[in-house]
Design a protein around this nucleic acid. Structure first.
Lengths: 168, 168
DNA sequence: CTTAATGCAAAGGTTTTGCAGAGCA
DNA sequence: TGCTCTGCAAAACCTTTGCATTAAG
């Protein structure tokens, strides 16, 4: 499966708008707008669920097969620093990412204990609690993250998650 | 600095009590009580701040210099599963640990953005929010974690943390 | 043209694992 | 004595980096 041309020429409106933000960010920072960066960006924003760097590489290559693993890893921090992508580390060894189209920093992650599937949910109280907790220690809060481990629906009924790939 | 004998023969009362819990847990699970496991346990419970696997190896070797890195890594999950140790992943590449002498699962971590120093603080509201958020998604909550990024006192005054070792 | 960005492959750091020998129950 | 646990070293794993080449501005 190499270099398939997808419907990249007519991305959805929201993706289009986000991409403009990304290009604007790159220019502001004096960074170059390359085909690889755009392919990686588009691939990331076409995902509906959280993805890993490796999965992103695969998707990006379906758009532009010249994209390398190194460039994916070099582009991820750019996208997270521009707040167009959210990084989620659930402690499973690899990091997960999701396009930050909604919620800003006010989202909690709920992770299935069996299959590691991540759900996000609005948690507007988080920022207030982050401040409360920080200030109790005399520190200045920067950001906060609430991660909840839970049993997903499939696990509760069948005792095993359908999309589980863990070695454990 | 190899195999220094410390004051291991007279550990504090609380450490002593915890160690008994650990031995009981091992026996219950049909696991063996070995000198290495006890040394690792004692080393872990002698720390006042969060530590890494590598740091734990060094401390454990001061108690019993036969302790190997492999055994440390094999013992860590046993101690976390017995709830005598708390694992904290702040997304820095290596995991941190701390003896779970207080707070149970009702603690939030506040991490300095510059030096990665971790402070813990009681956060009794967390469990309630974990439940709320999980149930909104129809999931059964298991545990929750609130991690706050903040600027520590030293960073605010000098612009740099004293104990910083990050490459970044 | 000038310089940043890229691909490749090797290196990096942390954690895991196979195996033969050691030691607890 | 049987079977778990251990140390050692190699491997696995994700991520980063050096270098020659490519391409954006």
């Amino acid at each position: 499966m190499t270099a398939l041309k997808t419907t990249r020429d007519t991305p959805s409106v929201s993706v289009e708008a986000s991409r403009e933000k990304f290009q604007a960010y790159l220019s502001e920072q004096g960074l170059r707008v390359t085909n690889q960066r755009l392919a990686i960006f588009d691939a990331a924003h076409a995902q509906k669920e959280h993805f890993t760097a490796e999965e992103l590489l695969e998707k990006a290559r379906q758009i532009d097969d010249s994209v390398s693993r190194a460039t994916v890893y070099r582009t991820l921090p750019i996208m997270t620093e521009s707040h167009l992508l959210r990084e989620v580390d659930i402690g499973s060894g690899e990091k997960y990412y999701l396009a930050a189209t909604t919620g800003g920093s006010q989202v909690a992650q709920v992770v299935c204990v069996d299959c590691d599937k991540i759900s996000e949910i609005s948690a507007p109280f988080m920022e207030w609690y982050g401040s409360t907790v920080s200030l109790k220690l005399g520190l200045k809060p920067v950001s906060q993250r609430l991660q909840v481990s839970a049993q997903c629906i499939a696990f509760r009924s069948t005792g095993r998650c359908p999309n589980r790939t863990k070695k454990k």
